[in-house]
Design a protein around this nucleic acid. Structure first.
Lengths: 166, 166
DNA sequence: TATCTGCGCGCAATATTATTTCGCAACTGC
DNA sequence: GCAGTTGCGAAATAATATTGCGCGCAGATA
């Protein structure tokens, strides 16, 4: 299933659930303008098609004691496929690393990390990340504040684009 | 309300909802080991206290036609508070910019952006971001692939940490 | 045009869940 | 030991999720 197979109702469903993933199906149906049963069927279809990957609560990291958020730019010595995969696998096993994106350009990976405090992060950095084989360079930047943090994609842009094509 | 006021049941609730934000309250209650009514009350309290900021469906950006994901490192000429705020406000108004984090170090901001294709992003880059007053430098990196993308915080680390303190 | 067929809707019925109400037990500070 | 407080859970009720089914519409076929 691809975007072109999605009708405007499907897209509205995705948009609404991206904004409020815990909305009741009744409310969702009301918003997209159909009755509850077909709405629920559509949601299930979207889930099974992988267009909805899951649902997550936004937890307040700071209040939970994760005071520090860091972006780490990582360069490797070897970019052989096996080495890239090996590094990714390590990232998946580090709980402080929440995201790992492979990039083009000089930097090979960017990691989004959280930690309870600066020293916890330093321990991770010096004890884990920097001692990992094949890691050539790591540049870290502390997050001072988060100005915008929107999930997923801008449906406005999608609709505008589709209306131009149609 | 701070983390120290959260008991193990609250933390389990947060952990479960971070993993599956659409779980029914009955299922959630079963998992955390209490009955449904107090479980729902706890969830409401956590929401009102801001420990849960919201719930979002993960939508598949690529399937929806957003093929391109980019990190942009932005440096400003002036780091005066008013200039920083002005830039942040612009970011909030750009739909392709999904996240904007202010950083320490040379780079002032890191932006996570999405776009339907490379030329859309180039248009945004040259037509918007680079022409914004006070923007001194922008370095962009295309995301080749996403190796890890976990929401929020690692509750394992939190529990381990609390058990050591207690 | 008439008919067939597949698809998706919505109504209605049922199963499940959410929410309120209330009484009880465990803790706290006198 | 005695109020006051807090949070649990049972029970009742309201709301929601889910299933089953018949209908109408759009496209295919003759």
């Amino acid at each position: 299933m691809v975007a072109t197979r999605l009708d405007p109702i499907d897209r509205k469903i995705l948009s609404e659930l991206q904004t409020d993933g815990r909305m009741t199906n009744v409310e969702l149906a009301r918003r997209v303008g159909i009755s509850a049963p077909p709405c629920l069927r559509r949601v299930r279809t979207l889930e099974e098609a992988g267009l909805i990957g899951g649902y997550h609560a936004d937890v307040n990291a700071r209040e939970l004691g994760f005071e520090v958020q860091v972006f780490a730019m990582v360069g490797l010595d070897s970019q052989a496929q096996s080495e890239l995969s090996a590094f990714e696998e390590r990232c998946r096993n580090w709980p402080l690393v929440r995201e790992c994106h492979m990039l083009n350009g000089e930097v090979d990976f960017i990691l989004k990390c959280v930690a309870p405090d600066l020293s916890s992060f330093q321990n991770f950095l010096t004890g884990e990340l920097l001692t990992t084989p094949n890691v050539a360079s790591v540049k870290t930047s502390l997050v001072i504040r988060v100005a915008k943090d929107e999930p997923g994609v801008p449906f406005d842009v999608l609709e505008e684009r589709l209306s131009r094509t149609a």
